[in-house]
Structure formats: structure tokens, C-alpha cells
Write a protein that binds this DNA or RNA. Structure first.
Lengths: 123, 123
DNA sequence: CAGTATCCAATCAGATACTG
DNA sequence: CAGTATCTGATTGGATACTG
């Protein structure tokens, strides 16, 4: 079984490298929600990213984990409990996402683009 | 012919919206190079993004243009000349890309990840 | 020079059903 | 609860050849 994460290809440059780590359909939102709530369980993440399937959620979480941006903590209980949170490296990206979010809000207003959810990308 | 740009889908939230505009394999580098050089012709962009095909370059440039991040200026000369540059909205993104680039550089050092090009993602 | 057109391969993503 | 497995469809990306 081949290793399947973002590291696979040698990045062209630092911009390329960084965009690979945070690119992808759900990574921004995932990191943002984890920032807002500090700790979230698998099911909670699933309910916050309403348009994600379990397959994509697991896949994306694994990539973020491999890339050292989030931490996965398993509690060996019945029923099982798994908690996700940002690592220190992941937290370094928060200001960036925060600014980008504000930029997005402003742009959506100016261009009159509707969005599905209201407020701060709430859970 | 269907309109084919990033607006097609209603964004879930502002984070989702912003990540769609700058996501994609080449957008970050394209914006970054245009920031560094102010004005670049099609062929120059093609030579800076060494791994891009003409198809993808045109496609990505059109998306950035539709999304109001870059401007395309055609000179009706022979041979033809087309110049690309950042719009005011596009320039708003430069600080983020700059930070992200620095973050990427730091991470690549700490994780000992090699990169193909050296320096400031130079042309 | 600045692209298009066409065809094909690879990757991404979704639906659905199932498991420790 | 927190995932996996499988199959299929959609989207993205690439090679190559050609054009105003």
C-alpha cells in the first residue's frame, strides 16, 4: 500500500508547498472549525461540514494529521471516542485563515454573493 | 456553452468562498509571480510555472480573471501581446500569500523537505 | 505570440452498505 | 461511535497537434 499524502510530490517552491497543505475542498473549513471549538469529535465535525461524506472526512483528517496540522486522540472506550484538535503548527495557520475569511466576507457582500450558512461559519 | 468559473456553486461560508478563489494547483504561484513582477506576458508566465501546460495556464488565468483577481490586457499588434497583472482586489491577497510563503519556507526547513526551485520562487 | 482543440489518463468525490 | 469497503460518476489535468 502506497503512502498517500501531500508529501508525495516534491514541491516547486514554498508557495506551492503551503498551498498543497491547506488546499483541497474541506481543509480550510476543518481547520477553522477546530480553531473555533478547540476540540471536536468525528461526529461533530461531520455535522459541521454538512456537505462531506464519511469517506472524504476521514481522508481529509488523515492528510491534515500526516501534515502535522491536527492531532488525533483516541479514547479506548465503548462506544469509541476520538477527538481532533489543532497542533501548534496548525495554530500557526489560524491568523491566515481568519484574514482570508474576513476578505471572503467582504468580497461576498460587494459582489452580492449569497451563502448557505450565516454568521461565523457556525457549527 | 455553460459558464465555467468558481462562482458556479453557492459557497457554504466565507472560508469556503475564499478557499475556492485561491485554491487550485497553480493559483497561488500565479498570483505570487504577478505580485513580484507587476506585469507578465502569457509566455513569461508559462516559463515561470514550469510544470503548467498551455491549456491549464489559460484555464487558470480565465478563472482568476472571472474572479476579479487579475486583469488581462490585449495589445492588438502583430505578433500579439497580452499582459497580465493583479487587480486591486488581487493585491489584497498578497499579504496572505506572503505570510503563507514564509510559513511554507519555515516548515520545509524544519521537516527537511527539498524543493525544486531556490530563492523567492523566482522567475 | 498567445492561445484552441481533441482525446485520454488520473485523481477526486459521492452514494451506499457494512463493521469493530 | 467512528470509521471501512466498494463501486461508480464527475472533475481535473496532461500530451499533442494545430491556428489567427
Amino acid at each position: 500500500m502506497a503512502i498517500k499524502n501531500t508529501e508525495e510530490q516534491v514541491p516547486i517552491c514554498a508557495v506551492d508547498f503551503a498551498f498543497r497543505r491547506i488546499g483541497g475542498k474541506y481543509k480550510g473549513r476543518l481547520l477553522w472549525y477546530l480553531h473555533l471549538h478547540k476540540v471536536l469529535r468525528y461526529g461533530e465535525l461531520r455535522r459541521s461540514i454538512t456537505d462531506i461524506t464519511p469517506k472524504m472526512l476521514t481522508q481529509t483528517l488523515r492528510e491534515l494529521e500526516d501534515d502535522l496540522l491536527i492531532e488525533r486522540k483516541v479514547y479506548h472506550e465503548v462506544p469509541p471516542r476520538v477527538e481532533y484538535s489543532l497542533t501548534e503548527v496548525g495554530k500557526e495557520l489560524v491568523p491566515f485563515i481568519e484574514h482570508l475569511r474576513m476578505w471572503g466576507e467582504q468580497r461576498m457582500k460587494k459582489e452580492n454573493i449569497p451563502m448557505i450558512q450565516q454568521g461565523k461559519c457556525a457549527l
